[in-house]
Design a protein around this nucleic acid. Structure first.
Lengths: 339, 339
DNA sequence: GCAAATTTCCAAAGCGCTTTGGAAATTATT
DNA sequence: AATAATTTCCAAAGCGCTTTGGAAATTTGC
């Protein structure tokens, strides 16, 4: 069933049917209802390719998948994509995934920009200096960045206030009397990790405390890495009395390390973890409930999708800069520093 | 730069240019070279939407992403997608991802089938009874399944011989004198896990050994789950002298559990793990090197892409049934059963 | 009641490509 | 040399939709 068939059946022109279906004003309400009803009855779905050709839009936004960086392994990325999908589905916009080996990432982006398969790209997890941004700016390919880099002025981005989040969290621990605080962070080449460390250091500096370099660690945000760093930190004397952790996955590992060391979370050692709000991981339900800096990464994905749509509608990329505040949620994993 | 411009510049018709570029025989070699050269020089890339409209092909294959089953978290899935991408990129076929909440999976598939955005779907990790298969068959949407289910006759699939792999692995352990063998398997609702358990049981039965139910465990294929099961198994007396493990991730966890229990891999306890050949995880380089049943899941993805392309070229789905044998690679993690 | 403004609809021209059905040019056959 | 077979190319018709530029029908203003 195509548009023309529908028009014939209704005794209308394809023009009118198209307009009725796409919400244009040049059609009476009565006719529109009739058309919409007939379309539903016949389960009419416009041909995506035809529409795309006619509108000059690919109807898709792209995401590059670095298969040997194994980004998709990262629950953060998956949640983000899920968020994107929630918004894009409403507008029938596809997510097209371009798996790429790390070695030809630049070529991949060039190929995507040269082609006409996607209208825009979504980038995430930017490095502190990220080559992709100047590359895409140069190629004139619209994109929205989830995160920030050093060059933030010219393109669209949405980020959470990582620096503020970790500053507040650190300040809270200081207020509880902790002075020996460890930081288990994501990989240092990522901008968000740098921001978090900056927040951590700023809060300490405000109290005149200089951080202990051995208690600042960075690595992949996995359970295992969290375990190993926490194990190492807690084996020292004196050990840190509080831990600031960059992901819930790492926090789980750190928690295991505490139990292995016979330490009680919230009493012997306090912990605040960053919570990206995974559906399968609820800090509230943990025992003890985990104190967190909270910001839904899925919600960020949804908003990035919205921004990408606005970008394609003509909004200037320079006007798209969103910095989301991060909640600090205090639960049972934080307590006063032991004497 | 569009086809027509290129044709004008070359003093040829769009027809000829199109044919030259798409490898049709009705054009002389000299002309073809000229056209190809000009296309490269101008970095001509055909408009994807126009081509799709003209050919009636969406030029994309779809994959549904169950966002709360968290399939993408699974490195297996990621490797598989990467494999798909390697093949599909050659034919400029996109991978479109449809993130879906688990509760409306059926609706998602219906929507995809009704639309014209993808030519075929790729499914993976089928359950033993998987609703998606009859659904898609009924909807007439072509698909290739990575794995098998009970109803294998009517659709295209590619699977590895999980049953044979675990039968051989078990037999090898038996040959080494092991009689107390534990199985740490993937989640029982998946068909591959059932196949592996079947192979395990068959090999034991062939020697008149009945498996110890407490030493058969199943769960998510993660490091942590592997750790927990192995820890539990090894705490028993007598403990198993060998472990058969469904993924390298789990094997890493199991390995940690062994060390934690003061046991030496390859001497006190033997282990064979299934290796899907991840780029970031080389069993050969482990200490001791891990014995594995090996089958590249990325290669499977590439082949599934190839099969999907053949399916779209008209090959009958009933003719597309591939069962890949699995290598058994013996390394240092397997040794004779301790006395 | 008539002209002007507004509403409602349509014919036709694309969007950029592929593909059918020849025609022209070249080569092979008698 | 004339005809047949083959090679090489092209004009034009789609693919299914959107959108421009009116035209016809209706409503409004005086």
């Amino acid at each position: 069933m195509k548009l023309k068939d529908l028009a014939v059946e209704l005794g209308l022109s394809p023009t009118t049917v198209s307009r009725a279906l796409n919400g244009y004003p040049e059609v009476s309400d009565a006719t529109r209802r009739r058309v919409v009803e007939a379309a539903r009855h016949h389960e009419y779905r416009p041909n995506a390719s035809a529409r795309r050709l006619a509108t000059g839009r690919a109807g898709a936004i792209g995401a590059v998948l670095q298969t040997n960086r194994n980004l998709l392994l990262d629950p953060h990325y998956v949640e983000f994509i899920a968020g994107l999908g929630e918004r894009l589905a409403d507008d029938e916009i596809d997510i097209v995934l371009s798996p790429t080996r790390g070695d030809d990432e630049t070529r991949s982006y060039r190929r995507i920009a040269a082609g006409t398969r996607v209208d825009a790209l979504v980038l995430s997890s930017p490095l502190i200096e990220d080559d992709r941004i100047p590359l895409l700016c140069g190629l004139g390919m619209p994109f929205v960045l989830h995160g920030r880099t050093s060059a933030i002025a010219k393109h669209a981005w949405l980020d959470i206030d990582n620096e503020g989040a970790f500053r507040h969290a650190t300040k809270h621990l200081l207020d509880l009397g902790h002075t020996r605080i460890g930081l288990i962070n994501g990989s240092a080449r990522y901008n968000y990790a740098a921001d978090r460390e900056r927040g951590f250091r700023a809060a300490l500096a405000a109290r005149g405390i200089s951080p202990e370099p051995r208690w600042i660690a960075e690595g992949a945000m996995t359970d295992e890495v969290g375990y190993r760093f926490a194990e190492r930190f807690l084996a020292e004397t004196p050990r840190p009395t509080a831990l600031l952790v960059s992901s819930m996955m790492m926090a789980l590992g750190a928690f295991r390390a505490m139990r292995a060391a016979g330490l009680e979370l919230g009493r012997d050692v306090s912990m605040i973890a960053h919570d990206d709000v995974f559906p399968f991981l609820n800090p509230e339900r943990m025992v003890p409930a985990m104190s967190t800096t909270r910001s839904s990464i899925r919600a960020a994905g949804t908003r990035v999708a919205e921004l990408a749509i606005e970008l394609l509608a003509g909004r200037a990329p320079e006007s798209i800069h969103e910095l989301w505040p991060v909640d600090l949620v205090i639960r049972a994993s934080t307590g006063p520093a032991p004497a």
